[in-house]
Amino acid sequence: MSGPGPDPTAQPPGNPDRLYILTGGQTRPEAKTELDLVTLIVTRSESDPGLQPEHTAVVRMCDFPLSVAEISAYLELPVSTLTPLLTELLSKGEVEARPPVPTAALPDVQLLEAVMNGLQKL
């Protein structure tokens, strides 16, 4: 799971749009895939018929983005059991991971403004 790669917390603070571009939809198989509870998993292709049932379940479920926590809830699997399974699917290119917005030490002002706007609608 670990290895050389860019430190996700070391990204420069930018506007949220830039963050989304930085984090959006890019899979770098050689980069370290730290799966957070709220990393979004999305299926990339038609599911490979040779997959094991639990892998197939993930691939089908993630037609639309789902967080690691949600997948764990639907499959009723502990996060630490699910993680290696997801890592395998990632390395096979079956799914892609959309990492959480990096918050480093303190979150970006524009990110907070976006969240406040969203909460206002509740």
Partner: peptide, 16 residues
């Protein structure tokens, strides 16, 4: 999997 009303849009890029 999620119920249809619990599906996120494909545009969901990142979470906090």
């Amino acid at each position: 999997g999620p119920r249809s009303e619990d599906i996120l849009p494909a545009s969901a890029t990142a979470a906090v």
